[in-house]
Design a protein around this nucleic acid. Structure first.
Length: 571
DNA sequence: CGGTGAACGTA
DNA sequence: CGTACGTTCACCGA
């Protein structure tokens, strides 16, 4: 394996490559050719970058990177910290206090503390205190002398190379698990850049019809928009005479309206109102109004115009790792598009979607994380809850509720009896959950299967995840984080494997949704792609489980189908 | 004008 | 009934 660092400067797009054997620089097209040439060579290449997002201009230009080391993601994994700019990452590998770093142009206007601001020399990347100079972190220092002098950008790439090498060394001393997870997280980070480039295919005509149904036709004027809004409000307001002036967008006023209809509720949340669906016609009308209002305001015409491009692709920013346990996140509705709009997500002409989701991922992950032999045995069934129900001597539905209650720290409900049964049948898995919750309650950090540190209490650094304030909530947070976070790791390993093994089919991963993936592929390759998606799960799961010697014990299953619209997925 | 909480969509 | 996220809205206080 050959390691090459790569840095792109903006706005010029000038790019530098650095490795011990090879230094190069050039414009985007020139470097794009160089990257392809190196990747086509006999020795596989791993590209080292400060952050995969740096590659955006090259990815936009159609360059496909095969293997990556993303210093920011490696840092997040090591530190459990979300802030992972070059300075934070640099400080971590050099044992420097980030608080002493030179201030960027907009940082800390009122900070008059001791700071190490002046670079050692005009051409020095670092300050006498060993920090990165602030104008280099901002990219201005490198860009200022381009294109005639690429040496600063080369220095910047070389610094990333050095940081990446130090991170790999540090992670390797902790064992193979963390290193493998860092590779996988790097791949996910690169995948995010491609998700941003590809976008999610939209059938504009169908989506427009769906929006019309909920929000009304595209308004010709502001007045028309207001009129339609008033008409929508009237469908609810006319059901409670005397309350026509209620602002339906104000929960306090809605509560008054409901009171006038004889319904006294502590809040107006959907879950609370569901119980009163049959009490008064205003309740179902209000719930239907809310669903339409959601689409009208968040997923309406403005959303369509702002985020669906001329090529009929919905685009938003993707993040490989959220602030808590490490799931992927996305903006502009890519992760919370109402199910009612899913018919509007459709493969382009001549293409199909391969849709796949992981079945019962969380209990299967619990088996892997805990290493409970009995619970691992249950994962070998296609339906995990069947053997659990048999062992507990209860109905499947009871077993399912009990397992979910145990994993999420549920307090209410009637899972008590079955929970006791679970403790007897699967003591190791259940003890792991309880000990994790206790650690969380005490404000201690917990660790995912792949070695990500998850902090349950605030630390000195700024920009950290905001953990729940009370002990019980911290306990539930920790209990959930090891499951959710570990599941996210398996998912990302799976997605990265799909990306690597279906590229030759012309496949593009266009959506990742925690346990579900949508692959856009030319029609003639769809069946082959579906088979490879399934195979990718088995390969990724085996490698992932082997990190902790569980490769023969836990089974993961995927439901894979070839569809034309997202809504065709099984319910 | 910026921050906060309610509400609700997804998993 | 548990957790996480992103988005919009009204309200609050400066």
């Amino acid at each position: 394996m050959r390691t090459v660092a790569l840095s792109v400067s903006l706005p010029s797009g000038y790019t530098a490559l650095w490795s011990p054997e090879h230094v190069a620089s050039g414009g985007l097209t020139e470097v794009a050719g160089l990257v392809r040439e190196l990747q086509a060579g006999p020795v596989p290449v791993r590209w080292v970058v400060w952050s995969a997002g740096d590659l955006r201009p090259l990815v936009e230009a159609g360059v496909r990177f095969e293997r990556l080391w993303d210093c920011a993601e490696a840092h997040r994994l090591r530190e459990g910290s979300w802030r992972a700019g070059p300075q934070e990452v640099w400080c971590a590998v050099h044992d420097l206090d980030p608080e002493g770093a030179p201030a960027g142009p907009r940082d800390d206007l009122f900070d008059f503390g001791e700071r190490d601001d002046t670079p050692a020399a005009p051409e020095s990347l670092t300050t006498p205190g060993g920090y990165l100079r602030a104008d280099a972190v901002a990219g201005r220092w490198q860009e200022a002398v381009l294109p005639h002098d690429p040496t600063r950008l080369v220095q910047w790439a070389r610094a990333a190379f050095d940081v990446g090498a130090r991170q790999q060394e540090a992670l390797a001393t902790r064992g193979p698990t963390e290193l493998a997870t860092a590779f996988s997280e790097s791949a996910a980070s690169l995948l995010c850049v491609e998700l941003e480039r590809f976008g999610l295919p939209i059938d504009r005509a169908t989506m427009s019809d769906l929006i019309t149904t909920s929000a009304g036709p595209r308004p010709a004027s502001l007045q028309a928009e207001l009129e339609h809004r008033a008409a929508r409000d009237a469908t609810v307001l006319r059901l409670v005479p005397g309350q026509e002036r209620t602002d339906l967008r104000n929960p306090a006023q809605v509560r008054e309206l409901l009171l006038a209809a004889g319904i006294d509720v502590p809040n107006t949340r959907k879950w609370t109102l569901e119980a009163f669906r049959d009490t008064h016609p205003v309740v179902p009308a209000l719930l239907a109004w809310r669903a339409d209002e959601r689409i009208a305001t968040t997923y309406g015409w403005r959303w369509l115009d702002a985020h669906v491009g001329a090529d009929d692709r919905l685009r938003g920013r993707w993040s490989a790792c959220d602030g808590a346990a490490g799931r992927m996140t996305a903006e502009n509705g890519l992760h919370n598009l109402p199910a009612a709009l899913r018919p509007g997500v459709a493969a382009a002409p001549g293409h199909r979607f391969v849709r796949a989701d992981l079945g019962q991922i969380e209990p299967r992950v619990l088996a892997a994380v805990s290493g409970d032999e009995a619970f691992m045995a249950a994962t070998r069934a296609q339906d995990l809850y069947a053997p659990v129900a048999e062992r507990l001597g209860v109905e499947r539905s009871v077993a399912k509720v009990a397992v979910l209650a145990a994993m999420y720290g549920q307090r209410s409900g009637t899972a008590g009896e079955a929970l006791a049964g679970l403790r007897r049948a699967y003591p190791i898995a259940m003890r792991l959950l309880e000990e994790t919750a206790e650690r969380g309650s005490r404000g201690e950090s917990v660790t995912t299967f792949g070695g990500r540190a998850v902090h349950t209490a605030p630390r000195a650094e700024r920009g950290m995840q905001a953990p729940p304030p009370v002990a019980a909530a911290r306990g539930r947070f920790a209990r959930n984080a090891i499951i959710q976070g570990s599941a996210a790791e398996l998912f990302k390993a799976w997605a990265a494997t799909i990306r690597a093994t279906t590229a030759d089919l012309g496949a593009e991963i266009v959506l990742c949704l925690h346990d579900e993936v949508l692959v856009h592929v030319p029609e003639e390759a769809a069946q082959e792609c579906a088979q490879r998606v399934d195979q990718a799960l088995h390969d990724a799961a085996r490698r992932w489980l082997a990190l902790r010697g569980r490769d023969e014990g836990v089974r993961f299953v995927a439901d894979v189908s070839v569809i034309g619209r997202w809504s065709e997925a099984k319910g």
